[in-house]
């Protein structure tokens, strides 16, 4: 097979997946080419995806790139931060070329500190009661509705789950959040913090079952050097690739992927 043939073959394959998705709706493109390719076009619109990784694995960067790429094609987004104050978040973002202050100013990308919101709602900072959780859920839905967003991030769901006290509450919260955002056709990324070097998709062991998709950011050791990796573990409604990719984070291009070379370890 010549090179140009293989290229056409690839295109066809992606085309096939797009047709499958066309039944429901157009995929929500991440704008990270290699990731969209892996997903057969993008994240299924309205899905709730768990983005899993240890601290520093690039969850926030990936989520932000997803939002800014959405803004570039006219899709509004909101980023709810729980772990980091806004000034820290924007300071980190300024390092990346994909970040444009105008997107914030124009309201295409909204950054909201969820702790301030919950403080204003009079919620306990440490623990949420069932009522607190449903109040918060309503507000999240209202805000998404008011801003008319198509992309929503919660960074991190782990910090939120920490405040929900039982597994049932966590299950209920994510399930209700996911289904109401799906009805608005809003694609959601929940970041999930896990300890390094552990194959575990969520801290509380429930988040992963309720999410429609899981993307895992990990690393592999190559003679002592750690190589960042990205793998799509599950994605409902797509024929996604399950191969592991090497991931690079640079200020110029943000996140980029390339197939991981497999060493014989």
């Amino acid at each position: 097979m010549t090179n140009s043939e293989s290229y056409v073959y690839n295109q066809n394959r992606i085309g096939l997946n797009e047709n499958e998705n066309a039944k429901s709706s157009c995929p929500c493109i991440t704008g990270i080419d290699e990731l969209d390719q892996k997903l057969g076009g993008g994240l299924p619109s309205g899905n709730t995806v768990l983005l899993v990784g240890s601290s520093g694995s690039g969850k926030t960067t990936l989520s932000m790139q997803f939002l800014t790429n959405g803004a570039k094609i006219g899709e509004r987004g909101v980023f709810f931060t729980i772990t980091e104050p806004l000034f820290k978040l924007t300071k980190n973002l300024e390092k990346f070329d994909f970040y444009d202050k105008k997107m914030i100013e124009s309201g295409m990308v909204n950054l909201i500190d969820l702790r301030i919101i919950s403080e204003r709602l009079g919620l306990d900072a440490e623990k949420y009661t069932v009522e607190d959780a449903s109040a918060l859920l309503e507000i999240l839905k209202d805000i998404a509705d008011e801003l008319d967003v198509k992309r929503l991030i919660i960074d991190s769901i782990t910090a939120l789950c920490y405040r929900l006290q039982t597994k049932e509450m966590i299950r209920d919260f994510i399930f209700k959040l996911g289904s109401s955002l799906a009805s608005m056709n809003c694609t959601t990324i929940l970041t999930s913090e896990v300890p390094p070097n552990e194959v575990k998709y969520s801290q509380y062991g429930i988040e992963e079952f309720i999410a429609d998709g899981i993307i895992f950011l990990g690393d592999v050791d190559r003679k002592g050097d750690l190589i960042r990796t990205l793998q799509v573990i599950k994605m409902r409604g797509t024929n996604h690739s399950r191969t592991k990719s090497a991931m690079s984070i640079s200020s110029k291009n943000g996140i980029e992927l390339t197939p991981l070379l497999k060493s014989r370890v």
Binding site: L86, I112, I116, I117, L121, G122, L123, D142, I143
Partner: peptide
């Protein structure tokens, strides 16, 4: 201090809430 969820759901209050949430200033 807990603001009633019904009160919060009015458009005006919601806008105000989004605004303070985006300001990044912890009260």
């Amino acid at each position: 201090k807990r603001v009633s969820i019904y009160e919060q759901r009015s458009k005006l209050k919601l806008k105000e809430l989004i605004e303070i949430g985006s300001s990044g200033v912890m009260p």
